[in-house]
Amino acid sequence: MSDLQREVSELESKSATAARLFDLRRIIGYLFLVYGVIVTIAGLNPSEADLAKADGVHINLWTGIGMLALGLFFLVWVKLRPTTVPTPDEE
């Protein structure tokens, strides 16, 4: 084993990332829920001008619903497959 491999293996054994880093899926889930709610509400009663601009498409509504769905997908994923945290090392 080379010096480099020894050094990196040693650092790997002391690493705290796996044990202490939070689950990103939760953040994505909540952010897209919030965005989804905001944009869906903006799309519920579009003004004539907004509708005309988007060529008659309820774009806020559809985008909002899409983002809500993405947010829910991530939260359900976390629920179904929670992270298995490796035993955190004491400090």
């Binding site: 650092l11 002391k14 690493s15 705290a16 990332t17 796996a18 044990a19 202490r20 880093l21």
Partner: peptide
């Protein structure tokens, strides 16, 4: 709080 070693800072502890 996950940054303890240089490997954590530069390479996420090779754990992603």
């Amino acid at each position: 709080r996950s940054v303890k070693t240089s490997l954590d800072f530069f390479l996420s502890g090779r754990s992603m």
